[in-house]
Amino acid sequence: MWAQGHPLLWTGKQREFTVHAPPGYTPTERLPLVIVMHPYPADGTYAAKLTDFNAKADKEKFLVAYPNGMDQAYNALVCCGAEDDVGFIGTMTKRLVDTWNADPQRIYATGISNGADMSYKLAVELPGTLAAIAPVSGGYIGPAAQNPSYMPQTPVSVATFVGGLDKYYAEFEQGIKFWSERLDCKAGQPEKVNGSNTRTSAKCRDTSEFTTYRLPDMGHNWPGSKDQTMGDEVTGVNATDLIWEFFTFHPKLSP
């Protein structure tokens, strides 16, 4: 079930997001909310196609929101523009809690590339809002992330997917190192996941978790997607399934 074209006036500009609710949805029941953010240049329609989160929501019964960036971009950590996308998405989220009855203890964010970077930004700059994020082919990178004080003030668990053939791989790995050092995350041994892929899980000082999927044969893609532009079907990992599984085990935590 699509609820198309929700307008939202923010900082004097018309912004838009779309919401997908599962069959049988009624606002009397509190459902988890997953915010899915597109790459640059793209929009929420493409994010839905790439990730197939609507089908996952229908099966597992949760809400999905797709905020549109201005000029097909978010003002994330390294790109693009100067819009207050943190404020826009924070306001969108509050509206979904107030009017769609989204569960404030189970609000999550994910995205790819520019949208993945944005999920890290939201984790830091919307304290107390998100329970967990899942950046795919994106990173905790850029000038802000270089600052040791730029870190979450409330616990936000992370599951990230990094392709070994991604041209930004080294930057993403540096970002993982920064986050882990600042939150004192202690990683366990990598586990094999379908061939040469690995999953490494870390427990952090603030009770959050940081899980990294390293996919050595993948580039700048969404693993498990059939999309011909940014999908990757051959890695043996389905990010959408693994992200939702991670989210279900990570409701909001108290520091």
Rank of each mutant, 00 (worst) to 15 (best):
G24Q: 08
G163L: 00
P39C: 09
L9M: 15
Q105W: 05
V97R: 12
F17A: 03
L215M: 12
N68Q: 15
G139D: 12
C204V: 01
I107T: 09
N101K: 10
M218G: 05
G12W: 14
P223C: 03
H6W: 10
W179G: 09
M151Y: 09
P104I: 00
V193R: 00
A48P: 06
L50G: 07
A145F: 07
G12Q: 14
R205V: 03
A3G: 10
K252Y: 12
A239L: 01
V136D: 06
V97L: 13
F88K: 10
L8Y: 00
M70V: 13
N197K: 00
P251E: 02
R182F: 11
T240N: 09
Y46I: 06
W179D: 05
P22H: 10
N114K: 10
I141C: 04
V19K: 04
G115N: 01
T26S: 05
N221M: 15
I176L: 06
F53K: 03
Y108H: 10
T93I: 06
V19W: 04
N101L: 02
M218P: 05
P67L: 00
R205S: 13
V36W: 03
T248P: 02
A102N: 10
N68E: 13
S180C: 08
P32V: 13
P216E: 07
G24R: 04
T248M: 15
V124K: 01
P127Q: 15
K177Y: 11
P155I: 04
A159T: 04
A239M: 06
D43Q: 09
N114D: 12
L33G: 00
T91S: 14
N75E: 11
C185K: 03
P135M: 13
E191W: 00
L215I: 11
Q189G: 01
Y25C: 08
T93V: 09
Q174C: 14
L9D: 14
F172Q: 03
D58L: 14
Q146A: 15
E233C: 14
V156Q: 01
R106Q: 09
T11Q: 13
L165I: 12
D217M: 12
N147S: 13
T45I: 11
S196H: 08
S119K: 02
G81N: 07
A73P: 06
F178H: 08
Y213I: 08
F247K: 01
P190R: 02
S113R: 01
F17C: 11
P104N: 03
F161G: 07
N68P: 04
D52Q: 08
S113L: 10
P23A: 14
Y169Q: 12
Y25H: 12
D184T: 07
S149I: 04
P23N: 11
M218Q: 06
A116H: 07
G87S: 09
G81H: 04
V78I: 13
L8D: 00
F17P: 09
E16N: 15
I141V: 15
P251F: 06
K49Q: 14
R214K: 07
D103G: 01
A73G: 08
V136P: 04
T91L: 13
Q189M: 01
L183D: 02
G139L: 07
